[in-house]
Simulated scan of single mutants.
Amino acid sequence: MNGGRLSAGLLEEAGRLHESLVRLRRTIHRHPEGGFAEFETAALVEKTLAGLGIPSFRVAGTGVVGRLEGTRKEPAVGLRADMDALELDERTGASYASEVPGLMHACGHDAHTAMLLGAAMLLAERKESLEGTVVFLFQPAEETIGGARPMIDAGVLENPRVEAVFGLHVGIGLPCGKIAVSPGTVHAASDMFDITVTGKGCHGAYPHEGVDALVAAGHVLCALQAVVSRGIDPLEPAVVTIGTIRGGSARNVVAESARMQGILRTLSPEVRGLARETIKVVSERTAEAFGARAEVSFQEGYPCLENDPEMAALVRETGSLLLGEENVHDLSKPSMGVEDFAYFSRERPSAFFTLGAGNPAKGIIHPAHSPWFDLDEDALPVGAAMLAAVAANFLQGR
């Protein structure tokens, strides 16, 4: 597929939007909002789209969908950006740092939103050349319970039917001006689980009269470390993490109950099912060995994010045209982090790529979810141009 016609000059034009994109990003950064509470951000998105003549509407509470129709209504292609912030106190000291205690854009969603608005600016200028419709998907709540599924359930991929969806995420480990993309599984699936261990409370002086739930829980915690190391094929990635353990009421009382919270991350449905069952069996039987009872419950999280080979190839080709082949890389390995763009990838052929935003010379070295996280804002026009170009190139000739 030759996307040169609608890629030509796009990066240079995006560069002229640099100041506007930085302003948008910093406005969003100063006013972070949590999942399904992105009211100011959604309003800013709507106002910006309206200024471009792009109609929009709300879905899933704070989600915003804009539709730019070119020379025909169909085919349609989707571009997605997440908008929510993290529960974190910012420590960067930047002039545009968060003004909301306990909330921070520490994962780049402010930049994602600004870049998708930049793509809308670029494509609005090329409306008469677009061979279909571009659907802009501004999504809430990626960091919490997930906003992608509610948007899909609300019908954002229909009328017109969206045939493919593209998205990106900034990467500090990749220098600004580069992208990375690969076909296949690129992000893990996750499952949250809770384990409640119940024993029998008693006076701490007479432990033989009770069943110590903390002792049983401690052994469960240790036994779970073998779920991956001894229960899963060493060539199959999986991570079991116990993040919290709470129990007991006083130093001289044998605890009657203890609760653990954990998360499972896997890259295949087979391993996911096996690991879930093993966690349950190990927990129950280990607690039983100490005279206690363990109850295990799971809450299904995001699925694996799968990049369609053809869509990933289109991102790679577009990146080569726009940035040069030397600036397009393979993802070295899948991430065990989760990403609810996965729901879009389950519904339509999709591709999710990493946009380089790191720059050690500027001190841009801290990873996502760090209170010191920041990004090289020179990446903003690059991301805007990539999103615009890949959408235009998808529509071309279909």
Rank of each mutant, 00 (worst) to 15 (best):
G9W: 10
G171T: 04
K73S: 08
A255M: 12
N252W: 12
K200M: 05
P334W: 04
P371N: 14
A50N: 08
T241S: 14
S98A: 09
C107L: 07
D153E: 15
S268K: 08
L21V: 03
A94N: 07
P381R: 07
A180R: 10
H109R: 11
E236L: 11
P140L: 10
I232C: 02
E270K: 11
I245R: 05
G108Y: 00
R23Y: 00
E325H: 07
T62R: 14
A124W: 05
P303G: 05
G35V: 12
H29G: 05
L88S: 09
G70F: 03
I195H: 03
I195T: 00
S332P: 06
D308Q: 12
L321I: 11
L86G: 14
W372H: 14
V239G: 04
G155Y: 14
A8Q: 15
V220N: 06
A384H: 00
I263Y: 02
L267R: 12
R265S: 08
Y96A: 08
P367S: 10
C304H: 08
V135L: 04
N2T: 11
G201K: 05
L79N: 08
G146S: 14
P101N: 04
K362A: 14
P349M: 07
R276F: 05
H105W: 03
E46L: 14
A50Y: 01
A106L: 13
T144C: 15
P75L: 13
Q396H: 15
V239Y: 11
T286A: 06
E99N: 00
N393M: 09
D340L: 06
A148W: 02
G102C: 14
D89R: 11
P55C: 08
F138W: 07
H203P: 12
A388Y: 15
S229R: 10
D82A: 10
A43V: 01
G63H: 13
G173F: 01
R251K: 09
F166I: 12
N159V: 07
G383H: 05
R58C: 15
P303I: 03
G78H: 01
T62L: 10
V315P: 09
G358S: 06
N307P: 11
